[in-house]
Design a protein around this nucleic acid. Structure first.
Lengths: 386, 386
DNA sequence: TTGGTTGCCGAAACCGGTTTCGGAGCGAAC
DNA sequence: GTTCGCTCCGAAACCGGTTTCGGCAACCAA
């Protein structure tokens, strides 16, 4: 290849050789003929740097591929440009299929600001505070994402006392006068979803609709129950405490509560579950009682776990966009560490209905349903069917 | 309460008030009546500090709750005491239920050395190298865990060239002369598990055993296929290429491959899948062909995903201890960054068989099985059964 | 011309550690 | 009694940034 002699050989003094050492502030300053203090202030947007200089510094920095070392900055500023999340590894209902999506979102949200994400795990409630404490003390993060918020959440008190920024994935303080106080949060409105689930069932013609809640320790359980009650009221249906069950954390516990509802003298023909996992527990029970899901009894879940798609019949449920949640949380948390008021950083998203095959018009009245169940149980109790 | 006047009022000059400011090196040094350089060297185990002094420094540091700021150390040492992992968010078979366990293990392994774990995500193969590059350049981590290793893995080349420590979760370079070269890794021996799966089926009396592999881009796919071949050979069964399928990344792809095997003129009575997800895909196909899993056809999976326990019949599979994997990887990686030779840091664990209900003695010969399938297909093809 | 702002930048201190280097103190050897 | 070597520690430089502070020049008003 022949190079055109008229064109000057391009000087790649600004070239960015990836294998070479990184360029540091001094070098950038030398290159610009400025002092490193000026360059630093220009990069950080100080007002005592002229607009011209700032532009020039910024463009050269970009061309030379300058990236400040966050831990070098941190030593003076005290900020490490990182957010952290501590997940507890001791939960009965772990194996969260959305963790990857959520983390992907959070990482992306952080990356957009050139921040990073560090994670840690705690084995117990008590360990949780220790882990948070260590992270705070060693200044491993400038703020925290707190997933799975509880009604009365020790992490919130702890971090508030330490005056460390944090944001909730979910809300807290259910039933208190000012539940949100001065915390920031992002949440998906489970109550809206559950309310619409009840409307949907009542639209199908169901008159007795049950609800199976989750662990009352978590704030969302109460909100979803509220949604259920709102749905009943909107449909003009009476509240029957018999139809409200709680504490279904796992699939097995979901089965227990479903059984309790279906064994009622006047059982519900539709059941709304606070979680998919619990809803899937009911599948076993329905099989056991010879009930056809979607016909004899309608089941709705919430979460949109992948498995809900593959069970038979596929489960009607609500899907939440975990990735977006992570992304929003990261961004809002970073903005908070930059000085924005926590109470201005709140967002409520909506879950979206996945219409599938586990619900439909009731073909049995509650009475008929009860009869079918006892009949089937007796039939099965007596002989060994083969 | 009356204090005993003979006892001197205890001076809590060493007390550790959690809400107070953290103690820094200077303060610790002042307290000890030593220079901060001496204290620093004592804490870091330099040999020019007397044993007595070292003990004294260590114990006082502990009592005062001194913890060095890792980013302050990093500025001089270049080491941030952190390991990183980049997960790719664009995979078709994401929703890894074990991510949480794995991360828990890795975090724990890191914590044991007082290290932390940072994570990031990449949207594509290309993005992956960028993300790694950024992390390296900004020195966000001293080493990397590389999950889901590929036969020909760009990350390995990239990090090797940059001379950055890393460890593989899995092996690499299948089929090459020296596949492991000088990398360190931890892996679960899928080949051993799959070999024993074949032995198990042959022990049941199966003579025609199929295999459905996974994405050949990943190293483990080849190893598991090897395990299948070893199993055949150990059982004295011939290799029939017809019985070997690949490329089942998802449940649906698993279904496709299962269908291909079962529609053979001489179909296998037992099928070993490289992954549970693919194995679950076969459930649909068996239902479609009117086949009873565990009787008409035996299915084995690998991974031990939670869902495998709840399908009907429950899937016989191999469970891998993801948490332990994470923990081992973290520890070995840290040791590598401290100077241990990569080739001395390798470990192979075993998966453990979960005997469930999807396999057993064949009640049909391959011929009979084929007949049953065609018969059922024709029956279904003709009329609309209701 | 003078004095006072204002805009813009450089010198130097600073952050909290680590590492280099030199030297005091001491015992042993000559 | 030197001299040498060894043990152990302190002073100071250093890492790569940020921030304080002061000063020069230009501009403005009197």
């Amino acid at each position: 290849m022949i190079t055109n002699p008229r064109l000057p050989k391009r000087q790649y003094s600004l070239r960015r050789d990836p294998s070479s050492r990184r360029v540091k502030l001094d070098e950038l300053a030398d290159h610009l003929g400025l002092s490193k203090s000026t360059v630093s202030r220009a990069l950080n947007g100080y007002s005592d740097i002229s607009e011209t200089t700032r532009k020039r510094v910024e463009s050269t920095a970009r061309k030379m591929g300058y990236r400040p070392l966050s831990h070098a900055q941190a030593i003076r500023t005290g900020k490490v440009r990182a957010i952290a999340m501590v997940i507890n590894s001791g939960e009965p209902d772990r194996h969260n299929p959305f963790l990857q999506d959520f983390l992907a979102g959070a990482c992306e949200g952080a990356s957009a600001f050139d921040w990073t994400m560090t994670i840690s795990t705690a084995k117990s409630e008590k360990d949780m505070l220790n882990v948070l404490g260590r992270l705070v003390e060693e200044r491993k993060a400038d703020g925290f994402i707190l997933p799975r918020t509880e009604v009365d959440d020790a992490r919130i008190k702890y971090l508030s006392a330490l005056n460390v920024p944090f944001i909730l994935y979910g809300r807290t303080g259910y039933g208190q006068a000012d539940p949100y106080d001065d915390t920031s949060w992002f949440d998906i409105s489970g109550e809206t979803a559950i309310r619409s689930a009840v409307s949907r069932l009542s639209g199908f013609g169901h008159r007795r609709i049950g609800f199976v809640g989750s662990d009352p320790k978590f704030n969302y359980s109460h909100l979803r129950r509220d949604g259920y009650l709102q749905g009943l009221s909107a449909a003009g249906l009476p509240i029957d405490l018999e139809l409200i069950r709680e504490d279904a954390r796992t699939r097995d516990e979901g089965a227990v509560q479903a059984r309790a509802l279906l064994e009622l003298e006047n059982p519900p023909t539709g059941i709304v579950f606070a979680t998919d996992l619990a809803a899937l527990g009911s599948y076993t029970v329905c099989a056991e009682f010879g009930l056809q899901i979607g016909k004899d009894v309608s089941i709705l879940g919430y979460d949109g776990i992948p498995e809900s798609q593959y069970v038979s019949p596929s489960l009607t449920t609500f899907s939440v966009d975990s990735q977006r949640a992570g992304e929003r949380l990261a961004e809002m948390l970073i903005r908070q560490t930059r000085g924005e008021a926590p109470e201005s950083l709140r967002e409520l998203g909506e879950a979206v209905l996945l219409e599938r095959n586990s619900d439909g018009p009731p073909r049995l009245t509650p009475k008929e349903l009860a009869r079918k169940i006892t009949h089937f149980k007796n039939g099965n109790l007596g002989g060994d069917r083969s």
